[in-house]
């Protein structure tokens, strides 16, 4: 028994631990979550008298009209009225043929609703949403995967680009010249799959700048980015939460972590930047939704390609990276 445990620890590598303990402290995480849930509660109570809206659902075969609650009902609730299979497969909602809408974000007005999934004829927007979610979840993984002696500060992730072959999260680590071993990458991938199997819904919340600064007060990079992001988004910061992890993104994201099928953390590369406080590492990965099944050989080709450095912009101390403006994105990708 002891021998097998010893082996397991030796397999896990020097810096990576398996689970439950975090690079970000538990108290800090609880504080963030309390702020998030209290703000969510406050916004829900602010709605006041419940008004009705009419949502016209347009499916591939049928059209339906649903009467929903203004500022309370989400596209996810609409999907639950339709069928279980639609609820499970829907990735993101398309409102009035123009706006992509997160599945768990309340609808503010009467609208035309379309629910997109991975197998539609033109899934470019869906792919982008999926890729963004993968970046976000990679951040959640990195936050929780390292031992306490390694300081982890999430920086940002660039706009999702499926054609580059990998999604990215840039992170500041207090490790000099860390080159991950294959087994360490494997442990990271397994941890990610375990996290996704818990089927966390991904929640979305618009908050003010002050609250966002309060939530991310321990992270100097996020604190620096927040005013600029708010300036481009009419004074609001959009937060996303999966499990206990909270991050800034313009969204939208997929509705649940159960959408993630295969997930590989393919490489970690040290970046050459002038950001103060420690070296920045670029975590890269590749993933496929659970509804798309690919054989291991073809997936191996994708994994091999994802090992090369992603050409996305490298963050610098000047100029804050704005993640793409796709929250109110249009059909063109």
């Amino acid at each position: 028994m002891n021998i097998s445990k010893y082996r397991l620890i030796s397999v896990l590598g020097k810096n990576i631990r398996c689970s439950n303990s975090r690079g970000i402290t538990t108290e800090e995480l609880n504080r963030q979550n309390e702020l998030f849930s209290s703000e969510k509660k406050r916004q829900k109570e602010k709605v006041g008298r419940i008004e009705k809206i009419e949502v016209e659902y347009e499916g591939s075969q049928n059209k339906t009209q649903l009467v929903m609650n203004k500022n309370i009902s989400t596209p996810y609730d609409c999907a639950r009225h339709l069928s279980e299979s639609i609820t499970k497969r829907s990735v993101v909602a398309l409102i009035n043929d123009t706006t992509l809408w997160h599945m768990h974000k309340p609808l503010p007005d009467s609208c035309k609703l379309e629910l997109l999934h991975y197998h539609i004829q033109q899934p470019n927007l869906v792919n982008k949403v999926y890729w963004r979610t993968c970046s976000f979840l990679l951040g959640a993984l990195i936050n929780s995967a390292f031992k306490d002696n390694v300081e982890v500060k999430l920086h940002s992730f660039p706009s999702p680009n499926v054609r580059s072959g990998s999604f990215v999260y840039d992170v500041q680590l207090s490790l000099d010249n860390w080159k991950p071993e294959t087994k360490e990458l494997k442990v990271l991938s397994i941890e990610m799959i375990k996290f996704c199997q818990k089927q966390h819904p991904i929640h979305c919340l618009d908050v003010s700048v002050d609250l966002a600064l309060d939530i991310f007060k321990d992270n100097p990079h996020k604190t620096q980015q927040i005013p600029d992001i708010a300036a481009h988004n009419s004074g609001k910061i959009t937060l996303f939460k999966a499990g206990q992890h909270i991050d800034i993104s313009k969204g939208p994201m997929v509705s649940n972590t159960s959408h993630i099928g295969r997930f590989t953390v393919s490489n970690v590369i040290k970046l050459d930047t002038d950001i103060e406080g420690g070296p920045i590492y670029r975590f890269q990965g590749v993933s496929l939704p659970s509804s798309i099944i690919l054989d291991h050989f073809a997936y191996g080709i994708l994994e091999a390609r994802a090992k090369e450095l992603n050409p996305a912009r490298i963050p610098g101390s000047q100029g804050v990276i704005n993640e793409d403006e796709s929250f109110v994105s249009h059909m063109a990708v």
């Binding site: 004829q121 899934p123 072959g165 939704p289 073809a298 390609r305």
Partner: peptide, 22 residues
């Protein structure tokens, strides 16, 4: 079964196409 081969825009087909180009 779901047809995942013929649509070039599905995520895995895009990834494989780009891998081929590279």
């Amino acid at each position: 079964t779901v047809d995942t081969h013929s649509n070039k825009n599905l995520i895995h087909n895009i990834l494989l196409e780009e891998a081929k180009k590279a």
